[in-house]
Amino acid sequence: MIKVSGLTKDYGARRAIHNLNFNAQQGEIVGFLGPNGAGKTTTMRILTGYMPPSDGEAIVAGYDVVEESLEVRKRVGYLPETVPLYTDMVVFDYLKYMGELRRIPDIDDRVDEVLDMVGLLDRAQGFIGNLSKGMRQRVGLAQALLHRPEVLILDEPTIGLDPGQVVEVRQLIRDIGKERTVLLSTHLLNEAQNLCDRVLIINKGKIVAEDTTENLQARLLGAERVIVRVRGDGEELADTIKEVKGVRKVETLEDGAVEFEFASGKDLRPEVAKQVIKSGYDLLELRPLGMSLEEIFLELTSNDGKKK
């Protein structure tokens, strides 16, 4: 659905993105992460046919973004970062206008349908200029969904929404992502973790990592870290755990819990559990500690992906 190879974009002397290569399949939600100015918006703009690349190729929904830009634009739903809207228009009229430009049949019914999807049916006759930021965000999302696009490109789709709306919009994206291709950029790393099948981490115009969040965690850590909590103070718990062969870096935390790690590949948790119980402790918790996406993000973007 999206196939990018060697994509490069220069703004004058400045290279915004350099030799990007990635794919996104139908039924996949791909997260696009990176610090400000990393090249996320530039990439998204190229994929939506807004601007051509300086070099490389991008195929979206089977069409080349430069050679067959109109065909790409027919099949892509796009929510830009700033959610540009005609503030002097009524919500319904605005969506109808955008639908007419896309030649959507039965446009009145379809507008009602998408307004219902984004929870704005009761504001259909309100002026966009009078809507809150979150509501405008939803109008933008409705516009992107209007023509049932094969590919949905969303630049920060949940920014400005209240927590309830965030949950609803994420569910909406999840539902859409079951059948279509969704590429979304976000600064909310937990959003990427919860929503995306795969993430692309971009830094200084280059992709520094591309994988599922779980695989990224495993690749970066090279080891698995676990926390153990027992009833009581568990003073000698650390010594007990150290007795298990293969366990390393055992640390007692302030609250009495103990963290340890073991090499990836062999799960030592059953042995540790047996040892803890055998030593007379009441085991309350034995939980793997994943590396958070925040940590992965910082690791990759601060070292230019050297640890990839």
Binding site: R45, T48, G49, Y50, L70, E71, R73, K74, V76, Y78, P80, T82, P84, L85, Y86, T87, M98, L101, R102, Q143
Partner: peptide
């Protein structure tokens, strides 16, 4: 200025 040009230029119109 308002950014709506981006919207128009990504719509399927020449």
């Amino acid at each position: 200025r308002m950014g709506t040009l981006e919207l128009m230029l990504t719509a399927p119109i020449k």
